[in-house]
Design a protein around this nucleic acid. Structure first.
Lengths: 304, 304
DNA sequence: TATTTTCATACCGGATATGATATGCGTTTA
DNA sequence: TAAACGCATATCATATCCGGTATGAAAATA
């Protein structure tokens, strides 16, 4: 049995306006109808739902308890229909929904570009926007609804309030130098290596910073006293290449340069920094279809 | 301009079914219509929104990118309308929406009953259900959607994932005994008080247990070695009255018995246990109107 | 190539929607 | 008490709605 055999959108529209105005006459005026037409439409709706939605109150009316209950459903249903139509009416021919992605540095140069490339190759009309920044900023933007998803390493639990995490893969932190650095390919690291050269470390407050500090302590190494702190991949790469620095960063950030032997891996045991990278999304919030497709594409890439 | 002049519920109903079946013919059969009628209704809808919603794909059809975008709005609008009607149709004359409340012991005998009493006095038709249990259980039920709200003390942050907290008032933990207990009204507590009599403490895992332990240590008292652990107000009260026990519990649990002088307060400084009591609700989840009224009533009672 | 399948368009006819008008009922105000 | 106000019901007329039937077009299959 079709719902639309009994219920019409005009029922909802009239009811919601009467509920808002608490007056049949004013609702009629607002809707461009006559007062008897509004009353008759209300009565029809009451016939459909089988309960009185309004009751007489002095000369006027007020919503009954049933009307109060129905108002939310009717109002949201109407709003969704209106917004859906307005959304499509408002689009240019080439436009699709916006997908805002927060990408931590470790994935900004790897799987996120691959996923977007794949979606565009598949003809997606979505408008992608990729935002970088530190994890707290991105997670805050995510919570505020300014981002659809944040991709990166699993944050600390106390930063996950209101968020869910969907793991994609695991990765470690590495220490790298420029190919022509004195430490490159020179056998075991001397104990004073981190004192002899500038060291780039992830910023205070980044997810992996505590892991890096712990890794130093576990191996009886001294945490560098005056590291340069950055999460800027561009700055880090430039500085490492040009200033004989040691860069301690997530593997993903430097994977391409390692493959191309522009940078070299130092023999530092970073097993304890291995951890999950994945998708942060808002709990109890349904992703748009376009954002869901982005996530699916990411999962596909990480499984392949 | 009325939306219902252009858009009809039958447009949404047809579109959603076509989107589900990905076939005009199968949708027609499911809806009890003929195939040309379904096609025409789709075309009408496309006229309203100004974009193609389906496109030919071999002999059949598939949703266009615009159709994908519109599907969520249309589906939810339709579902809300259907659920709203079904909700009212399904009610007995005396029935209202269900409100499920998790109440920790401290409020089970105080503000929650007052709030429900007030709502019922105001003629609310909602069906209230009050569930007790420990905080982890209640918060878990809240997350699963089996509870609308949990009232009690603010839990530890790591238990708040996916939840928000709305403070109502502050309260402390107290130590009480039966009126005729040897310690009642006997001046300063002897150091061995907690060794000489059975002690009831909040259970391991309860929110206030760590506060109680810290309070003992702060005052140079020994934490009781063999306390009886409980959050059952019924059991605690009975045991305290009948077995010369000392009961360490939130003030709210025993407020009435203190006022009636059935129980007596011991001179123990529990200032450090002062903390917020309030409402836990799910983040990013809109409370039903009935649940929202319950929360408002609670707030009113706590402000008065 | 002929047939089948699926969707698209055109036309028709019965049903529905809705405004206009008249009028009645209950409540409030002067 | 009379008048005004707001909502309710009834009736009528007319334009619109909406589903069925017939048939055509395009793609896939045999």
């Amino acid at each position: 049995m079709r719902l639309s055999a009994q219920l019409k959108l005009r029922h909802l529209e009239v009811f919601v306006e009467v509920a808002r105005q608490e007056s049949v006459t004013q609702a009629a005026e607002a809707l461009g109808m006559t007062q008897p037409a509004v009353t008759r439409t209300l009565r029809e709706l009451e016939g459909v739902v089988g309960k009185p939605l309004v009751e007489r109150h002095g000369r006027g009316i007020r919503l009954s308890a049933y009307g109060e209950m129905f108002r939310d459903h009717a109002g949201r249903s109407l709003a969704l229909a209106r917004d859906g139509v307005a959304m499509l009416q408002g689009l240019d021919a080439a436009e699709g929904p916006r997908v805002a992605i927060g990408a931590l540095p470790t994935v900004s140069a790897t799987v996120v570009p691959d996923a977007l490339a794949q979606l565009r190759a598949e003809g997606s009309h979505s408008r992608f926007s990729v935002v970088s920044g530190d994890n707290r900023y991105l997670l805050d933007q995510l919570r505020r609804g300014n981002l659809d998803v944040v991709v990166g390493r699993l944050p600390a639990p106390d930063h996950m309030v209101g968020l869910d995490f969907d793991p994609l893969f695991r990765e470690r932190v590495v220490a790298v130098v420029a190919r022509d650095h004195p430490l490159a390919g020179a056998g075991p690291l001397p104990a004073e290596a981190f004192d002899s050269y500038p060291v780039l470390m992830p910023s205070e407050g980044s997810i992996i910073r505590p892991l890096v500090e712990r890794m130093f302590l576990e191996q009886g190494l001294t945490v560098p006293r005056f590291p340069i702190e950055t999460v800027s991949a561009t700055f880090g790469r430039r500085f490492t290449l040009c200033h004989q620095a040691i860069w301690i960063i997530s593997h993903g950030v430097v994977r391409a340069d390692l493959e191309e032997e522009v940078l070299a891996l130092l023999p530092l045991n970073t097993d304890s920094t291995l951890g999950p990278v994945g998708l942060c999304i808002r709990s109890e919030h349904q992703l748009s279809a376009a954002a869901a497709r982005f996530c699916s594409a990411l999962r596909g890439i990480c499984e392949g």
